[in-house]
Design a protein around this nucleic acid. Structure first.
Length: 278
DNA sequence: AAGGGTGTTGAAAG
DNA sequence: GCTTTCAACACCCT
């Protein structure tokens, strides 16, 4: 469930619950998630610590425990559940954080792609992955001038550039499609041929799309189990993503699905212009 | 019923 | 360098 709005929704849901709670035990069932730390050291570093709150940068969650921070990335399917500590372990639960009151926070991830890393609190932004992130798509430092500069320098498709977290942090496959639809630009357009005006439209569209998605608690698709903080309502607002064969909500043209940079990509052939024109 | 696809990312290969 | 492909993993859908 991980693009910026879904991660922010998890943060907002979990933060008030975990704030002030103290870890009594950590149990790791699959250590492939842990970056540069062994399960016993991971357990030792966190046990006895009290959480001061959760931050977020791009798609990364930052669990703060005094002078250390646990950085978590949900990748494709990571989720958190809160359950009594003695509930039986689900097949896809890989890490338990058991708190002093007997409740547990469990990391659930069918594909096991997620990552966890512990860094000093004052070096949070040097964590693996985080240190290379570009400005967040929803913040003021993601400007049209900045994006235009970056677009100019590459021949890649504009969608591929927007998915690159080193360029801009927070957009993923759903919201890039929605952003480019709103901006009226075909995702296959060559980045270097977009002008300053196009860049401005993309920046405005990304902020509008993400702000609304955050307000609605993100998007829930393919959700077999609705869990803590993952059931959003933005799916009703999707204009193109997952709408292959359906009519465009603006012009009635049929939404098509294609492939850009190896990713499934949805667009309206009438509302989105390919640049440069053929 | 095998193969392609999946809200991601980084390492390897070209 | 820059860009594309692939691998990590499990499951769902043709």
């Amino acid at each position: 469930m991980p693009e910026l709005p879904e991660v922010e929704t998890v943060r907002r849901t979990l933060d008030p619950w975990i704030r002030g709670r103290t870890i009594d035990d950590v149990r790791v069932f699959y250590d492939g998630l842990l970056r540069d730390i062994k399960p016993d050291a991971f357990q030792r570093r966190l046990t006895g610590r009290t959480c001061d709150g959760i931050g977020r940068y791009g798609k990364y969650l930052l669990f703060r425990f005094g002078d250390i921070t646990l950085i978590v990335h949900l990748r494709m399917e990571g989720k958190f559940y809160i359950k009594p500590g003695d509930d039986p372990k689900d097949k896809h639960e890989h890490v338990f954080f058991v708190f002093k009151d007997g409740m547990s926070l469990r990391y659930h991830d069918v594909r096991k792609f997620g990552t966890m890393e512990i860094v000093p609190r004052d070096r949070e932004m040097e964590g693996q992955g985080i240190k290379t992130l570009g400005p967040e798509a929803i913040r003021d430092d993601f400007t049209a001038a900045y994006l235009h500069e970056r677009l100019k320098k590459t021949s890649r498709a504009v969608k591929t550039v927007l998915l690159d977290q080193k360029i801009v942090a927070g957009l993923g496959n759903i919201y890039v499609d929605e952003t480019l639809y709103r901006a009226g630009i075909d995702p296959r357009s060559r980045a270097s041929s977009l002008n300053a005006r196009h860049a401005a439209r993309i920046v405005d569209a990304a902020k509008a799309v993400l702000d609304k998605a955050v307000a609605l608690g993100g998007t829930t698709i393919r959700s077999y189990t609705s869990s803590l903080g993952v059931t959003g309502r933005f799916q009703n607002d999707l204009m193109v993503h997952m709408r292959e064969g359906e009519p465009c909500k603006r012009c009635g043209e049929t939404i098509v699905k294609t492939k850009v940079g190896g990713r499934g990509t949805y667009l309206c052939p009438d509302c989105q212009d390919i640049i440069p024109k053929e």
